Simulated scan of single mutants.
Amino acid sequence: MQIFTTTQDLRTFICQFKSQNPQKTIGLVPTMGALHKGHLSLIEASLTVCDCTIVSIFVNPTQFGENEDFNQYPRKKEADLHICAKAGVEIVFMPEVSQMYPLDSTLQTTFNAPAAMANVLEGKTRQGHFNGVLQVVLKLFNLVRPDKAFFGRKDAQQLLIIQKMVQDLFLPLEIVPCPIVRNEEGLALSSRNAYLSPSGITQALRISASLNAVTKAIMRGIKDSYELKRIALEVLEGLEVEYLVIVNHELQNIEQIQKNSTLILVVVRIEGVRLLDNLWF
């Protein structure tokens, strides 16, 4: 496994790889590190279908708001490298901030996410967050020039906005959505789960249970969004539900679900920990 810390070394490798292996494919797995089984599933998906897998590990400052502590975000360099090496990753790109943002902030080119998709739900209280996400993702796409890039469905809003950017800018790559990874009891994996007590974990299981209840209702033929939300909220009764919405892939509220274009998003706070989950239908 090779580790690159500068954009120049990465670009040199990419140029050589593409000139020497014109038929081989590159898969990119963008991460902010602190890797867990969810990230590993993205890496394994890339290793399965691509000839060369590149994992980026970069805590991106431009997606952090004023009240979000960029410096406190967990950084586990040695553990992350061990996971990548054990999985069989060919390249890890681990740059410093100065490599990704070499100019003063007032001289940098910025990028705006589509407002209708970026200023709702997660973006409602994190103004500018998705602008920063797209800025760094586009930089990575331009540096790596991947054939495929792998993102988890758990961060549904992020995934949809990145897909929209690729479509709008005619970027020559495929975004590969990967399933949510859960533990044996159904809880969606997240680094935030570590902050929960055993009692909190038990409560958190009601989140996936609410989505399972919705799935069963849909299988019974229920398509009304109001009724499906009522069913989910009944399971979540007593918990602090920040939002539970049923939307299309443009993140617009819908009254009736439609197959292959519906997303049910839920955010619940348990013991002060903000937990996300969703159901793609």
Rank of each mutant, 00 (worst) to 15 (best):
V29F: 02
C84F: 02
E122S: 05
F70N: 04
Q108P: 03
N21S: 11
H39S: 03
Y73R: 01
E68G: 14
L103R: 14
I91T: 13
V55C: 07
M100N: 04
V120I: 14
G33T: 07
E96F: 04
S105P: 13
E90I: 06
S46P: 01
K37R: 11
Q63W: 03
G27N: 10
Y73D: 03
G65P: 00
I57R: 07
A116Y: 13
E44Y: 05
T53Y: 05
Q63C: 13
T125Y: 04
P30F: 08
G88N: 01
Q63F: 06
T110G: 09
H36S: 10
A118T: 12
D104K: 12
I83L: 13
N112Q: 14
A115V: 12
R126M: 05
V92G: 10
L47A: 08
I83W: 11
H129W: 07
E66S: 15
N67G: 02
T125I: 04
S56P: 01
G123D: 12
A113Q: 07
F111A: 13
L42M: 08
C50N: 09
F64Y: 00
D80R: 03
P30T: 02
Q127C: 04
V29K: 03
L134V: 11
S19H: 08
N131T: 08
K139Y: 01
F64G: 06
V92W: 06
F17E: 12
F58W: 00
M94Q: 13
F58L: 12
G132H: 00
P74I: 02
M100I: 01
N131L: 06
E68Q: 06
I26D: 08
E44T: 05
H39F: 05
L140H: 05
T53G: 13
G132T: 00
A34P: 02
P114T: 10
I26A: 06
G65M: 04
N112S: 12
E122Y: 15
Q72F: 00
P114Y: 09
K124E: 15
M32Q: 06
E44W: 02
D51H: 09
G38K: 04
T48K: 15
C52A: 03
P22Y: 03
H129Q: 03
G123I: 05
C84M: 04
K76T: 15
S19F: 09
N112P: 02
Q23L: 13
V137P: 02
P95A: 12
V29H: 03
